[in-house]
Amino acid sequence: LDITFHVDGKNIHVHGASEEVVRIIEELIKNNARAEEIKETLERLLR
Rank of each mutant, 00 (worst) to 15 (best):
E40V: 12
N31A: 10
T41R: 08
D2Q: 10
E36R: 08
S18A: 05
R23H: 08
I29A: 02
V22C: 02
G9I: 00
E26Y: 15
R23G: 05
E26S: 13
E40N: 11
R44H: 07
I24L: 09
V22K: 06
E40S: 12
D8V: 02
R23W: 13
I3P: 06
V7S: 03
I25T: 01
K39N: 10
D2L: 11
A33E: 04
H6A: 07
D2M: 12
H13D: 04
R23L: 08
L42W: 03
T4L: 05
E37G: 03
F5V: 10
L28W: 04
N11S: 12
N32L: 08
E19H: 11
R44F: 14
I24C: 02
E27R: 11
R47C: 05
N11A: 14
N31W: 08
T41N: 06
L1A: 08
V7R: 01
L46F: 13
D8H: 07
I25N: 00
D2G: 09
E36P: 07
E40H: 12
L45P: 00
V22L: 08
K30R: 13
K30P: 00
I24T: 09
V14Y: 06
G9H: 03
I38D: 02
L45C: 01
A35K: 05
E43R: 15
H13M: 08
K30A: 11
V21G: 01
N11L: 13
H6N: 13
I29E: 00
E26M: 15
E27I: 11
S18K: 05
N11Y: 15
E26R: 14
K10Q: 15
N11C: 08
V14F: 06
I38S: 00
T4E: 10
G16E: 04
D2P: 06
H13V: 11
T4Y: 12
A17C: 04
K30I: 07
I29S: 01
E40W: 14
D8N: 08
V22P: 00
L46K: 04
N31H: 11
D2Y: 11
G16K: 06
A17V: 14
L42K: 00
V7Y: 07
H13Q: 07
I12S: 01
D8M: 04
E27V: 09
R44P: 01
T41L: 09
E37V: 12
L1M: 13
L46P: 01
I3H: 12
E20Y: 15
I24D: 02
L28P: 00
E27A: 13
V22R: 07
E40C: 07
D8W: 05
I38K: 00
E43V: 14
T4K: 04
E19R: 12
R34A: 11
V7F: 08
A35H: 11
A33P: 04
L46Q: 04
E19N: 10
E20D: 11
N31G: 09
K30Y: 14
L45S: 01
H15I: 11
K10F: 15
G16L: 07
L42E: 00
R23N: 07
T4F: 11
R47Y: 14
E36I: 07
V7E: 03
V22I: 13
E27F: 15
I12C: 05
G9T: 01
T4C: 06
E40K: 12
A33Y: 10
E19G: 08
T4S: 11
V7A: 03
G16H: 07
